[in-house]
Design a protein around this nucleic acid. Sequence first.
DNA 1: GTCTATATGGGGATAGAC
DNA 2: GTCTATCCCCATATAGAC
Lengths: 209, 209
Amino acid sequence: MAQNTASKLNETSRSAVGRDGVLDIAARLFREQGYGSVSLRKIAEAAGIKAGSIYYHFGSKDEIVAAVLDAGIQVVHASMRDAVTALPADTDGETVLRAAIRAHLRALLDVSDYTSANVRIFGQVPQSVRDANLPTRRAYEAEWDSLLSRLQEDGALKQDVDIRRLRLMLIGALNATLDWFDPDRGSADALSHTYADVFLNGILERKDA
Amino acid sequence: MAQNTASKLNETSRSAVGRDGVLDIAARLFREQGYGSVSLRKIAEAAGIKAGSIYYHFGSKDEIVAAVLDAGIQVVHASMRDAVTALPADTDGETVLRAAIRAHLRALLDVSDYTSANVRIFGQVPQSVRDANLPTRRAYEAEWDSLLSRLQEDGALKQDVDIRRLRLMLIGALNATLDWFDPDRGSADALSHTYADVFLNGILERKDA
DNA sequence: GTCTATATGGGGATAGAC
DNA sequence: GTCTATCCCCATATAGAC
């Protein structure tokens, strides 16, 4: 997210400026430590400013968290939508679904502290903050439902699976990788391939094949 | 867990006595509200005692949380092991795996506040508490790895799937149901059937069949 | 925009009476 | 076993100087 006005020096920590810089740091800390462990003091320290100064940019801690949560969904939504629309119109269903899975997993595991922070802390934030994030989430969910419905109508997916339930199962499974994914054991891309294999074909040895 | 010394009246809230009663209430509150939102004062109030009295039973909040986490895994572990060992020795691989999935999901969604609390708050508790829960978790994971390896050796599962990764995918997917499961939309048993169908056979429409 | 205070509240935890 | 009372710390948030 960030896009600071100018420099890109000192990547790791110090002197992140402005509202976006604070937001970037907050997202990273929330992803790393969860919601409850991250105080405004911690965010301020990581940003190289004092806690009170944060209130120049934000009205409350909830406002920061809400901004992080919304951006997190927007990033993964755009990633998934772009990956799908970039394909030729006549692409087969399996390839489309694989692209969507890959885009979701890349946003979550490779690209965005905002997306991973959202997945990690959504269940920890106050109800009011969760509610504020719901419309954004609904839009992303609708994108998936639309995709899955289309594939089912095209005959690519089994007819007897409930789209809503399938979406919950799939996104839930993908998001759960955040708890154990380790880039040293294989890339997010490779992992997305495995997930696609399992969801598309299952793990049972088949007598035919 | 509970097993109070005697009565079973007033199910919903008041006058839960003793260490086990406090633990039961803590587990329920952690499951419902997460770790950060549940103070000792809240637990005490729900138990019908005062906050200070909790320290007669426990040395610290961490001790309570650790006990809840351990019990949560023990319950689901026993549930899964019993379900599998109850089957005849020559039961086919698919049936065994379906039973294990069903047992895990039932413990998580139907039976135990401890198991659901564990899944919900494990990522929110202090590192030291997580570490204390690891041995118990490892034992349950080993049970799954052992089961999956056996099925793979018997030729029931595809040979090219990595057992550890498969276990992480499967347990992660099952645990994710906690975020959206709604008994009004279908039982945990029915849901376990759907999960087994997807993981075993996939969602792709097949030309053969 | 950032600083130095500081107000205010809630958290975990302890001491000692009953 | 439970109570009351209290300590101490850290959290969010505010006020006003620079």
